[in-house]
């Protein structure tokens, strides 16, 4: 599964993307965040305030309760500020 990070989440994690194989039983975005946040201090910092973490599953906005089963790409980013 490809994991992407943008803006200050990218800076805190220290990379823009990583290819990972989450453990069996990781079914929701929340469970994926639980696993990712424990990977490094940077990951932990990026996911420290989960209210600020927006998620897209295969380029579509989803909430933290969404399933990640079958997802090819999951992106994490702060609230958007374009326009």
């Amino acid at each position: 599964m490809k994991i992407l990070y943008f803006a200050w989440m990218r800076e805190k994690v220290g990379r823009s993307e990583e290819i990972l194989d989450p453990p069996a039983g990781t079914q929701t975005v929340t469970q994926l965040i639980d696993w990712l946040a424990a990977r490094s201090a940077g990951h932990g910092a990026a996911f420290a305030n989960r209210k600020l973490v927006k998620v897209a599953r295969d380029q579509v906005h989803v909430d933290h309760a969404a399933s990640i089963a079958g997802a090819r790409e999951v992106a994490f980013f702060p609230p958007v500020t374009g326009g």
Partner: peptide, 26 residues
């Protein structure tokens, strides 16, 4: 289009000034 673009388009701004750089908050 502008209202929805501002809340849905995956784009982020970072401002740089004399005191450093900071991500713009939504």
């Amino acid at each position: 289009l502008m209202d929805w673009l501002k809340t849905k388009a995956p784009i982020w701004k970072k401002e740089s000034g004399a005191t450093g750089a900071a991500w713009v908050e939504a």
